[in-house]
Structure formats: C-alpha cells, structure tokens
Simulated scan of single mutants.
Amino acid sequence: MHGHGRRAVDLFRKMEAENLLPDHVAFLALLYACSHSSLVDEGKRFFEIMQHEYKLEPWPEHYVCLVDLLGRANYVEEAFQIVESMKMEPTAAVWCALLGACRIHSNSEIGEIAARKLLEMKPANPGNYVLVSNMYAAEDRWEDVEEVRMRMKITGLRKDPACSWIEVGNMVHTFIARDRSHPYSDEIYAKLAQITKKLENDGGYVAQTRYVLHNVEEKEKIKMLYGHSERLAIAYGLLTTPKRTTIRITKNLRVCGDCHTFTKLISKFFDREIVVRDANRFHHFRDGVCSCGDIW
C-alpha cells in the first residue's frame, strides 16, 4: 500500500528460503503488492506458483488482484480472458476491477460487459453506478451518464461527496470540494491561488480537464479542479504547519490524476513531503515524485 512491491517480493523469497509455507493470505498480500507496483510478470508467475507449487486454489480476492494487475498495465483483453476462465462465478469486485481498467484505458466494448454485470450483481451499491457513469463520461457519452444518474435517483441512491481531512494542532479539519465553510476559508483560497500561480509559472502546471467528468464548459472544469478537497486541505497545511514538516492528508475517494500531478509539484516547489491516504493506497510525495510510480 506504500508502493514497495519489490520489498514485498523480496520478503516472500526470504520466507521460501526459510522453508515457511505461504498460505492464501500471504499470496493475497503478494499479488496486491505486485498490482500496486505494476510488477506484471512477477504477479502472473506468483499466481501460477500458488496453484501448481503450493496447491492452493485461488480465492475470488486473488482473481481481483490479478485482474487489477493486468488492467492497470493495459492488458485489458487478457484480464477479461482471466475473468471468463474463472472456475467460480466472478464476484462484483472482479467486475469492478475490470471496469476500472476499461475506464482508464478507454475500452468501451469490455467496459459495457463489465458495467452490465456489475449493476446486475450489486444494484444497491452507489459506488458501482458512479464507476459506470464515470466510464461513460470519459467517453463524452452524456446521455448514458444521465441515464445512470437517473437510475440512481429512482432507486434512492446517492454518491458520497469527495472529502479530505487534515489534523493540525490536535484538531481534525474537514474539507469537501469547493468548500467555503472553514473559518479560514478566505486565507485558504488565497493560499491555493498563490500555490497554483507558482506551479503554473515555475512548474509548467496546466490543468488536465479530462479528469472532470461533468458536461460543463472548459472554464468551469478548471474551477472544479481548483476546488478539489485535497487541494484545500494541503493549502491549509501549508498555511498552518512549520516549513519542511510533513503534511498528512486522508481522502475518502481516489485522488484524481490532475490533483496527483498538482501535489507532486507542490512537494517539489514548496519543499514538503506530503502523504495522502486515498481510497486505494498511500501516496508519499517527495521532490516531485510519488511513491506509487503514478500507478494507483
């Protein structure tokens, strides 16, 4: 979860050298580590070793890791073949991993199949509707987006708003997107504007509006990006913590690609380590680089 996939593999090799027998959970941790570090060949090999050398039948969770591993690396067709060849019925989590890969790599054909299966299996999970909606939005299929959102509305489902937290002085400060409820809201937005200007001038930052999955004008998309909750939390951290101290943020959803780039630049041009725990993993930003290797 901290981006040290190679260390996880080395630890596994050490277990083998000491004749410790790995179980299902050990392989699950290993495959998860490979997935989050894009160790594709290693992950595929360990999946085979688990079955043939240690005679362990994969759980659905192992298939989720394998599909996620292949999907992240843009082997979407191969990931789909794995799903179709499963000895058990694919779980919603398996289809979710496949759908996420299809959205990232714009594979609408397999994405449609995964979306249909996911909504059939988990019709009461709002997160699944959001994932399907985001896939359509990334392809500018706004009529399909509206249909999915209408289905959510009819069934009474609501998506969780993006929310970020930072602890300063033994007090937790909470921010939602474009939030102005904080007592120091004016100072936070002024700081954020200063940060953005510096990153544009010195770091060549340009807002990547493709990450705004709403059918609005380009200027509005830029405004929406600039108001993302983690940026507000980071701006507050820069305002209120001593120079060169680590800023730690927690977010309930996945960090978007534009905020990821933005935060890497902040770590470089403001000389801060920034640790963000999002819905997927930990991101350690330092000197313009993230521990995730831009894979999350």
Rank of each mutant, 00 (worst) to 15 (best):
V94H: 07
E48W: 05
E53G: 02
N74Y: 05
R72D: 01
H52K: 15
Q81C: 12
E89W: 00
E84M: 14
V67S: 10
L69D: 03
H62P: 02
P90K: 08
P90M: 06
E89L: 10
M50W: 02
S85I: 10
R72T: 07
F80C: 06
Q81W: 04
E48G: 01
P90S: 08
K44H: 05
V94W: 06
E89G: 02
K87A: 14
G71Q: 00
V67G: 07
M86I: 13
E57S: 11
E53Y: 04
P90V: 04
R72E: 01
E78Y: 00
Q81L: 14
H52R: 15
I49H: 09
I49T: 13
F80A: 13
E77P: 01
C65Y: 03
R72I: 03
E48M: 06
H52E: 15
E48H: 09
E53T: 10
K87P: 10
A93N: 14
L69E: 02
E77Y: 12
L56C: 05
T91A: 12
D68N: 14
E84G: 03
V83M: 11
E77I: 10
E42L: 10
C65M: 04
I82G: 01
A92S: 15
P90H: 06
M86C: 08
W95D: 01
E84S: 14
Q81A: 14
I49D: 08
P58Q: 07
Y54K: 07
M86F: 08
A93Y: 12
A79E: 00
Y54P: 05
L70P: 10
M50F: 01
A73S: 15
Y63G: 01
Y54G: 06
S85R: 15
V83K: 11
F80H: 14
Q81Y: 10
P60M: 09
P90C: 08
C96L: 12
I49N: 09
T91W: 07
D68L: 05
S85L: 04
P90I: 02
G43P: 05
Y63T: 02
E78W: 00
E57K: 12
I82D: 02
V94L: 07
K87F: 09
R45S: 13
V64T: 14
E78P: 03
R72A: 03
Y75A: 07
R45W: 11
K55W: 08
A97Q: 07
I49V: 15
R72V: 05
G71W: 00
P60F: 08
F47R: 02
A79C: 02
E78C: 00
E48R: 11
M86A: 09
Q81M: 14
Q81F: 06
E84F: 01
I82A: 03
C65S: 11
Q51H: 10
A92G: 15
E57W: 04
L56R: 05
Y63V: 04
P58K: 06
A73E: 02
A93D: 15
M88I: 15
M50Q: 01
